[in-house]
């Protein structure tokens, strides 16, 4: 079944590409072997789906009219200038890094897409060495990532059930603008249609397989959208600073993030403890980190952070 559909779509591609002018649906139906023997309605359904798929593969299908046609006749063709990849020349160094990057998807379904891209780009490029010591494997949540990426690519709305950090489940419809991975977790950002506002969701918390809804190209990116700036908020972009004292020789990770501070040393702090200012943006993460350090760290400020660390520690003693 898949083989017959693949063959039909290849034939449709060749027919549209070989056409000297626009072809009517009737002409296409006669020239593409896979459409023979289909009823009128079955042909219409198959042709519509095939056109959608061809566009998904990256093809531009032009619609228009030949000069001698009646006013209501619509035809289709693929212009060679829009179909063909212009020659891309990669130097040996560039080809080498492209080859490495193509291994990023390892055993994932998307590995095939990267392999296609590399084969297309290699046609007019130099050969690259494969002997480089880097192995950048990208991991994505299975079953969830690909539908979101397709929705981003095609600008299609996507519907999914989402469990928030408090465990509450809700159904969402999103116009997805982009996907970002930070600290090992993938996020999707877009316009939440029902709530009419920008939202970011963690893909790990999406339940079951998301489904696209509505037509491709059904929304535009907001003018002036700066996804990099939105995602910078997700990463640890410091907004506040904590003042800490650290026991000598401990907690090197906190110590490395610390900067010098002119905060006064409190009375009773041993001389060999280091006073530091540590910038942070995600308070729950820092509270956990400071609680884990327990009596290796003295939290001096801000006061609410200090209280919440002590609350957390009290929870361990019960």
């Amino acid at each position: 079944m898949a083989a017959r559909k693949s063959e039909r779509q290849m034939n449709l591609t060749i027919v549209l590409l070989a056409a000297r002018g626009y072809l009517t649906r009737h002409q296409i139906r006669r020239r593409v072997e896979g459409y023979a023997g289909l009823s009128d309605s079955a042909f219409e359904r198959a042709f519509e789906r095939d056109k959608d798929d061809l566009r998904r593969y990256g093809m531009e299908i032009s619609t228009g009219q030949n000069a001698e046609w009646a006013a209501d006749e619509i035809g289709y063709r693929i212009l060679r200038s829009e179909f063909e990849l212009p020659p891309v020349h990669l130097t040996a160094e560039e080809a080498a890094v492209v080859g490495l990057a193509s291994r990023a998807w390892a055993a994932h379904d998307l590995a095939g897409s990267t392999a296609n891209a590399v084969r297309k780009l290699s046609l007019d490029s130099e050969a690259g060495s494969a002997d480089l010591p880097w192995d950048p494997v990208v991991t994505v949540p299975e079953h969830v990532f690909t539908p979101f990426m397709e929705a981003v690519n095609t600008r299609t709305r996507i519907r999914f059930d989402y469990r928030n950090s408090r465990g509450e489940v809700s159904r969402r419809v999103l116009e997805p603008w982009g996907l970002s991975q930070t600290k090992g977790s993938w996020y999707v950002t877009g316009r939440d249609v029902d709530r009419d506002g920008r939202r970011t969701f963690k893909l790990d918390r999406v339940i079951d397989t998301p489904r696209t809804t509505g037509a491709a190209g059904s929304f535009d990116l907001p003018p002036g959208l700066d996804l990099a700036a939105i995602w910078a908020e997700l990463a640890d972009q410091p907004a506040r600073s904590a003042v800490l004292a650290l026991r000598p020789g401990t907690e090197a990770v906190l110590r490395r993030r610390g900067i010098d501070t002119d905060h006064p040393r409190p009375d009773g702090l041993p001389e060999d403890w280091t006073l530091l200012e540590v910038p942070y943006s995600y308070e729950p993460g820092l509270i956990g980190e400071l609680a884990a350090a327990a009596d290796n760290v003295l939290v001096l400020a801000p006061a609410d952070l200090r209280e919440r660390v002590l609350e957390r520690l009290t929870g361990v003693t019960r």
Binding site: Y57, G58, M59, L110, K120
Partner: peptide
């Protein structure tokens, strides 16, 4: 001959490669 040149990169093909290059 009709297909002797490759099709432009599909969005998925381009993006998977770009993500790999970003990680690298």
């Amino acid at each position: 001959d009709f297909l002797s040149r490759p099709l432009v990169l599909s969005p998925t093909e381009a993006l998977t490669l770009v993500v790999g290059l970003q990680a690298l």
